[in-house]
Design a binder for these strands. Structure first.
Lengths: 135, 135
DNA sequence: CGGGATCCCCCGCGATACTG
DNA sequence: CAGTATCGCGGGGGATCCCG
């Protein structure tokens, strides 16, 4: 698939072509709140106010924007119940769940390698003069 | 692990706790160029100027910043060869490859669901008045 | 060739106030 | 309760110039 055929890893099926598509997912998933919202919805449907209180730190504006964006992409389903106190529930769609699962892989990677990254940063920030500090 | 024990999906081992760690990975991977650089390096080591020409659109500033950041996290190895024309090679570290592989999962997800997302957006943007448009 | 320094612009995001 | 409208900032990232 690659131009030179140098198969050195599993993460390059077409390089720049796929990266273009990847950008969309990363933009989708890389913003500040989307993943957090999806993680919460992974435990089941939630109301707007539940999400708002659970996340604590998110502004109503950003919560709405995030939910709208996820709904637009077909990852979250919005259900309005027009009662005397209006009620709106949000839930992951099946496709939303598959993305959530995929992101789960990244979570596990983060757990596994967070200490490695932490160590790397310490070494790097230490100046680079002593690249073999005592444990 | 979850507070209520509602095991509804694979993507929530501790919800908010993990999301915190995930943020680091998403910040790492979510910026504009990191993944692209890693994808290129997935085909083998490259020189600075090779990367710069391959990516086309990246400024020297951003390429350097991206590479430095990846190097700091121990994901990319920088090798300086002090010759008459100075030469610097960059390559993925073993851990860098594992992240690259993990991201590969997202790429595949993107390929599989890009049309779904596209359709969802069309329907959503169409107004929401007719939510059952003819195929 | 491989970068650092500097300037500037854009927009993601937060805070606040108001509405159906 | 579930949002919408407006304002403002901070920083990510582009362009450009220069240096070892």
């Amino acid at each position: 698939m690659t131009e030179d055929g140098t198969s050195t890893g599993p993460a390059h099926t077409g390089v720049t072509d796929q990266v273009c598509e990847l950008r969309e997912v990363l933009d989708r998933v890389g913003d500040k709140w989307s993943v957090l919202v999806m993680a919460l919805l992974g435990d089941g449907p939630r109301r707007y106010s539940e999400l708002r209180r659970s996340i604590e730190g998110i502004s109503p504006r950003m919560l709405t924007l995030t939910l709208r964006s996820l709904e637009r992409d077909g990852l979250v389903l919005r259900t309005v119940t027009p009662s005397s106190p209006p009620r709106v529930d949000y839930a992951l769609t099946p496709v939303g769940r598959t993305l959530s699962a995929e992101v789960g892989g990244l979570i596990r990677w983060a757990e596994e390698h967070r200490s490695y990254i932490g160590r790397s940063r310490r070494v790097y920030d230490d100046g680079g003069a002593g690249d073999l500090p005592p444990v």
